[in-house]
Simulated assay, not measured.
Amino acid sequence: MSEYPKDLQLRFGEAERNPTRNQGAVELRMDLDDRPMEDTLLLLAPTQEDFTNTDPWRVMRITAEFVEGFDALAELGPAISIFGSARTQPHEPLYQLGIDVAKAVAEDGFNIITGGGPGLMEAGNVGAMEAGVCSVGLGIELPFEAALNEYLNIGINFRYFFARKTMFLKYARGFVVLPGGFGTLDELFEALTLIQTGKVIDFPLVLVGKKFWAPLVDWLRDTLVEEGMISASDLNLFSVVETPEEVVQALREGCR
């Protein structure tokens, strides 16, 4: 691993990780490959002569990820993407809420797309399978997250976040956002930006958990609106609800 920058060697060579890692569609055992993630390498200055580490080759790899995603999901039908924390444990009430939300959405006529990992992503896939709809997981290459969960009908692994995000949006009629961390917030604010700028139309964005989301909504209203960074009407781009039934109602209203 000596050809990679020293900080990457330290970060990825010494960190505690899972026995296996996904690299796009390929699963690697960590004792056989300690290579940094492709997203990381993409943003570094070139340091190697091997063509498979050059930008032209990466363009073809990126194209392949889009082709694989489009091909796998082209006939999926109406779907909702569900986001939430990978750290939620199956014994926690929030995990059961994730199952119930996904099941209610599925029973209203939608397939379910998640990030394919553990926690609330897994709960979403469990709810989809219990409801008998197509359960989709879109995984990502990370040094600290397990492989795709077992509750999937279709599972796709991605190297690049932007290719994965496109699939979340392209094949979904709306987003349901359960409590989560940076990754969940990333998807939330990307969706808000696309709705605000008219890049996606008639796209409901539903946040689940009033207590969890209240401080964020307060900050949006009391800071961003007050400072003129967003319009007061931008607060209407999303709904905050509490129950699976309210999620379904918000999606129905937004999908009109």
Rank of each mutant, 00 (worst) to 15 (best):
M1V: 02
P5D: 10
Q9M: 12
L10H: 12
F12Q: 00
G13M: 03
G13Q: 01
A15P: 02
R17A: 14
T20E: 14
T20L: 13
T20V: 09
T20K: 15
Q23N: 13
L28T: 09
R29A: 08
M30Y: 09
D31N: 11
L32S: 10
D33T: 04
M37K: 09
E38H: 15
L41Q: 08
L43E: 04
L43A: 06
P46C: 07
T47C: 09
T47F: 14
Q48C: 14
F51V: 14
T52Y: 13
T54W: 01
P56W: 07
V59T: 10
R61E: 14
I62R: 08
E65S: 12
A74R: 14
E75F: 12
P78C: 12
A79Q: 15
G84M: 10
Q89I: 07
P90L: 12
Q96K: 15
V101T: 11
V101F: 03
A102F: 06
A102P: 06
N111Q: 08
I112Q: 02
I112N: 03
G115E: 05
G117S: 14
P118F: 05
G127S: 04
A131N: 01
G132D: 05
C134M: 12
S135Q: 01
G137F: 08
L138A: 05
G139P: 10
L142Y: 10
A146T: 14
A146V: 10
A147W: 06
N149L: 11
E150K: 13
R159F: 09
Y171H: 15
V177L: 13
P179H: 06
P179D: 06
L188R: 02
L188N: 03
E190Y: 06
L192G: 01
L192V: 01
T193Y: 00
Q196R: 10
Q196T: 02
L205M: 11
V208Q: 04
G209S: 08
K211Q: 12
A214P: 01
P215Q: 07
D218M: 13
T223K: 13
V225K: 13
E227I: 00
M229L: 14
S231L: 14
D234G: 04
L237V: 01
F238D: 03
V241H: 08
P244A: 08
E245I: 03
V247Y: 05
A250R: 01
L251G: 04
R252T: 09
R252F: 02
E253Q: 14
E253W: 05
R256M: 07
